[in-house]
Amino acid sequence: MKFGIHAGLWMKKWADDPAPIFAKVAELGFDGVELSLLGVGRDRAEAIGRQAADLGLEMTCSTGLGPEADPTSADASVRANGLAVLTEAIEVTQMLGARGLAGVVAAPWGVFDPANKGARAERAAQTLGQLDAVLEACDVTLGIEALNRFESDLTSTAAETCAIARATGSQRIGVLLDSFHMNIEEKRPDAAIRAAGETLVHYHVSDNDRGVPGSGRYDFPADAQALREIGYDGWVVAEMFVMAGNPASADLNIWRDIEPDPTQAARETLTYLKEVFGNAG
C-alpha cells in the first residue's frame, strides 16, 4: 500500500510550479504525489518528473475531459479528439515517470444526457478500448473515476463505472473509487469496493466534507477491510479540496475553508492513513 496526496490541496492554478509542493510532500513523509495534467504538457513533463524523483517521490496522475473531447459523443470527430487528448495524457504520464493515470476520462465533467445513457456508455467503452496499445506501450494503467450525481450521470456508481471499464476489453483499464463520491452514491461503499475487485486500480480519500479523512463521518475502517479482502495493494491518495475561493477548484463549490491549513491537513491525513490502511495491502 502506498500513500499519496494530490498536489491540488495546495495549488491555486493547475499550471502552478509544483516543485515547492513536492518538497512539502516529501518532508511530510508521503510515498508519492498525484499531479493533475490539466496544467502539464509535454514541454514540462520530464523536468517535473525529475523534481519529484530527486525528492524520492513516486508520482501518479489525474486528468479530466471537456465537451470537445467527449468519448461518448455521437459525433465521430469529437470521439476522435477525445482519443487524441487521452493518448497525449498517457504519453505525458509516462514522461513524468508515472504509471497511473485516472480521473474523468469516460465522459466530460458536468455533461448530462440521461436519455441516451446506454448508447453513451457503449461509445465510451469502445473509445477507451482503443487506448489499449498506447497504455501497453507506455506501461500506464487508466482508471475511470466514479463521480457523484452532481458531476456525472454516466459513472455515478461503482457498478456503472466498472461495467464501462470491463467493456473496454483492456486489461490496462480499471476504475478509480473515491470516498467523497461513494459517500453520496453508494449505500455501502465497502460493498462497492468488494464488487469492483480487481477492476479497482486507484483509490481516493477525503471525508464527507472533502476534508481530512477521519475528521468526519465516513467509515474508512470498513473500506480498509474491503481493500484487504480484495487484495488491493495500490495507491491510497488523499484528494482534498479545502480552500475557499481557490481558482483550481472553483467548479467544486468550496464556499468556506474546510480545513484551516492545507499542510496541517496533509500531516493529519498521513497519520490517519497509516493507522487505518497501513495493513490493508
Rank of each mutant, 00 (worst) to 15 (best):
F3C: 10
H6R: 00
H6I: 06
A7T: 15
M11E: 01
K13E: 09
W14S: 05
F30M: 03
G39E: 04
V40A: 07
A45F: 09
A47R: 11
I48M: 05
E58R: 14
T60P: 00
S62G: 05
S62D: 08
E68K: 10
S73N: 13
S77W: 05
S77T: 15
R79M: 15
A80F: 02
E88H: 05
V92N: 06
L96F: 07
G103S: 09
V104Q: 03
A107Q: 12
P108V: 05
W109P: 00
W109M: 15
V111I: 13
V111F: 12
G118E: 14
L128H: 15
L131I: 13
L131R: 09
A133K: 15
T141D: 06
E145H: 06
A146W: 01
A146D: 06
L147V: 11
L147S: 10
E151K: 07
D153W: 02
L154Q: 06
A159G: 04
A163F: 07
A163G: 04
S170A: 14
L177W: 09
A191N: 02
R194N: 00
A195N: 14
G197P: 05
L200A: 05
V201E: 00
G211H: 08
G214Q: 03
F220W: 07
A222V: 07
A222K: 06
A226I: 07
M240F: 04
M243E: 06
A244G: 11
A248K: 06
E259Q: 15
T263F: 03
T263M: 01
A266E: 01
T269Y: 03
E275Y: 05
E275I: 01
V276P: 00
N279L: 00
